[in-house]
Write a protein that binds this DNA or RNA. Sequence first.
DNA 1: AACTTTTACAACCGCATCATT
DNA 2: AAATGATGCGGTTGTAAAAGT
Length: 349
Amino acid sequence: MGRTPCCDKTGLKKGPWTPEEDLKLTNYIQIHGPGNWRTLPKKAGLERCGKSCRLRWANYLRPDIKRGRFSFEEEETIIQLHSVLGNKWSAIAARLPGRTDNEIKNYWNTHIRKRLLRNGIDPVTHAPRLDFLDLSSILSSTLCNQSLVSVSNLLGAQALLNPQLLRLANTLLSLKQDNNPEILLQHLQQNQQPCNNSQENLAPPPPCSLQPNQQLQVHPSTCSTSTTVPCTPMLSQMETMQTYGEGFFSCSNSQETLVSQPNYVRSDSDPNPTVHLVSENTNIRSTDGWSQDFNFDSLRSTPISSPTPLNSSSTTFINSSSSVDDERESFSSLLKFEIPDGLDFGEFM
DNA sequence: AACTTTTACAACCGCATCATT
DNA sequence: AAATGATGCGGTTGTAAAAGT
């Protein structure tokens, strides 16, 4: 409806707030409370529109705002909540005490989103996307320093749900052992090309013997308690899996861990961090016979330098890296999905 | 040291929703 | 019921600082 924006009024200041303005606004609100935002600026002696004042207070001056870096737990929470709520920043902020929707939105756009993309995860759907994987950097790291290749770098463990990707990983690892970068390059080109167009070009996700009525339990590896929340990426995986009927995956018991995203955690007890995938001996049955009784041990990486431990209670480890952001990159993509007995998937479908 | 590019984040803008008249 | 006003929300932009060349 033809309402004029409050900031259209001429003479009102815009842009960054000065310390004096902050002081005026803070003092006024501490004494009188915000009251009516439209009339507040005049009363407080500010040449700003009410909207600008409200935003400044809500996002910056409010005393209960927690400033500084997001903790790993907060980041985990954001990712999980985003997978459920989408871009409902205020809803996400409501579950993160001391954080504002604006702050979370900014953090998502500048850190988490990019990280998910680099890990081959669609930040919108949270589903694995091979076309998002930065295969060029994988390739260069592979060719430049083959001793540092890890499966998690190659594909991200979420790719383990895709037989084509697993086959590619297997091939790359064997080629790596053969020390033949040219063939490796050839394979990467062959395998990347069909995947760059769209998700439809990916091989059909494997069917899974998960029962249709199993519920998904998601718990971040860093948290001591499990949270049961519907998880979009996993659900989309499951939906597709069920489409293809039984046969590829066999999640044979209630404690099997399905790895749909890089699923490794750190330990500060190990001076030589390695990549260990959760549920190392998970058996995966394949209908096409390419990985009968697949064992994650075969994909374990070699130890690397620069240990940067994070989680002393964990039993598995990730690549550590020199930058904090890279550490978070690995860490934040942890999502461990357990499918306990008798849980109902149907309610999320 | 100077310049360019990238990153991070505060702030703005327009729209939606709800309340009030 | 319709018009208007207030507030909240999410997308986008502007810019300072940091990083890279």
